[in-house]
Amino acid sequence: MSADDWYLTEDVDDFLARAGGFLRSRPGAHVMQLTWAERVRVRGLAALFGVSGRGREVHGTFFRLQDRGLGLSPLTPEQADSLAARLAALGHAVPSVSADERTAVAFAEAWRRHSGVAATPRDLRLRLYRLGTLTPPEPPPAGRARVLGEQDLDQVVFWCGKFARSVGEDVFLDAATWAGSRFADKRYTLWETPDGTPVSVAGANPLIGGQIQVDVVHTPAHLRGRGYAGAVVTEVSRAALAAGAQDVVLFADLSNPTSNALYQRLGYRTLTDWAGYDFDGG
C-alpha cells in the first residue's frame, strides 16, 4: 500500500462523510474514533483525521487532537507502515499512539523504521469489553441508583476527580475547568446506600453510532467488595440499552483482575486488548 493512499483532513465533517459508514459498521472496534470525532464536532476542537482507501472503499482511519498522540482504528501491518511513512514524510512529530494491541505494535515498529524514533510501551494495558446478555448481581446490595443532573455538578466533579486520581490521570477538575474536560459529556449515576450515602459512581458517553461506552467507574478503596460497582454498572448498562444502544462497551485495566472478573460476571465479553506507546522526543 502506498503512503499516498492516506487522505488527510482537518475537517471532521469531511472525515465523517468519508469514513462514518465504515466506523459505524464495527462500532466496538472504532469506539475511540467515533467518540473523539463527535467531541471534535460538538466542541470545535482542532484535530487531524486520516482515511485509508480509494474512492468509497475505506480500510482504516486515524485521529489526532492538537498536541496529542494518534488514535488508530484496527490496521494491518501494511496500513500501519504506509501511515507511518506518510506522516514521517510530512515531518509530523508523533508523541504517542493508542490502538488495539496488534495495531499499536505494528505502528510503533513502523514509526521506528520511518522516523528513527524509539517507542516505549505504556504500563497501562486495557481490555475492551462488549456487553452480551446483561446479568445483574444477585442479590444486589442494599440501596438505589440515582442519576446525577446539572444541579449535582459539585458531586460529579468530586467523583470524577477521585476516579482520575485513582487511574493516574494528570487532570485538575473544578467548576471552571469542567466544561473543557473529557468528563463533561457523560451522564453519571451514583449508587447510594439506604441512608443516601453515595458509595460508587459510573458514567456513560452519549449514544454515538448506535453504541454507548460506559466510562468512569469508581468505588473508594474502603468500600470495595460490597457489590456497589456491580450494582451501579448494571444500572448504567440497563439505561444504555433502554436508550437504544445496540452495543454497550467499556474498558478495564488488565492489571486489575477484580474489575475484569466483575464485568465478565455482568455479561461483558472480550472484544480486544488495547495498548499504547510513547515515542521518545515525539
Rank of each mutant, 00 (worst) to 15 (best):
A118L: 14
H92R: 14
N205Q: 08
R144D: 05
G209K: 08
A184H: 08
S200A: 14
G161C: 06
R122F: 07
S181E: 04
E109V: 12
R86N: 02
P194N: 10
G132E: 03
G180L: 00
G196R: 13
L153E: 02
D215V: 10
R165T: 15
R86Y: 03
T133Y: 02
T189D: 08
G161A: 06
G143K: 02
T120S: 14
V105G: 03
A85M: 09
Q155N: 03
F183A: 12
F183T: 09
A145Q: 12
P198Q: 11
S115D: 06
A99N: 07
V201A: 08
P137G: 05
A93D: 15
G180K: 00
D170Y: 02
V199G: 03
A110M: 10
G210N: 01
P140E: 12
L90R: 15
T189P: 04
P139T: 00
V171G: 04
R102G: 15
P198H: 11
R146F: 06
D195R: 14
H218T: 04
T135H: 08
A106E: 11
S115G: 13
Y129P: 05
Q211M: 15
G132M: 01
V147N: 01
P141T: 06
D154W: 02
E101T: 14
T135P: 00
E109T: 11
D123S: 01
A108D: 10
R102K: 14
Q211S: 13
V156N: 07
A89Q: 12
Q155M: 09
H114E: 11
T135D: 11
P140D: 04
F172I: 06
Q213C: 12
V214I: 15
E101W: 08
N205A: 04
G132Y: 02
R187M: 01
R127H: 07
T135K: 11
R112F: 15
A164E: 09
L173I: 09
S181D: 01
L207M: 04
G203P: 02
E109H: 06
G180D: 07
P220F: 09
R182G: 14
V171T: 05
F172K: 05
A176M: 04
G161R: 05
I212N: 09
T219A: 07
L126M: 15
F163H: 15
D154M: 01
P194E: 11
L131Y: 04
P194T: 08
E150K: 00
P139K: 00
R113H: 10
F183L: 08
T120M: 14
A93I: 09
D185L: 13
D123F: 03
A179C: 01
V171M: 06
Q151S: 13
I208C: 08
Q211P: 00
T133V: 13
A202V: 00
R187H: 01
A99V: 06
V105Q: 10
G196Q: 07
P220C: 08
A108K: 10
F172H: 12
A184L: 05
L173N: 11
A164T: 09
G116Q: 10
D152G: 05
P220L: 00
A93E: 15
G209L: 10
V156T: 14
P95Y: 12
P220S: 07
T120Q: 15
T189W: 10
G168F: 06
K186P: 00
V94S: 02
P137Y: 00
A164I: 09
V199M: 05
K186F: 10
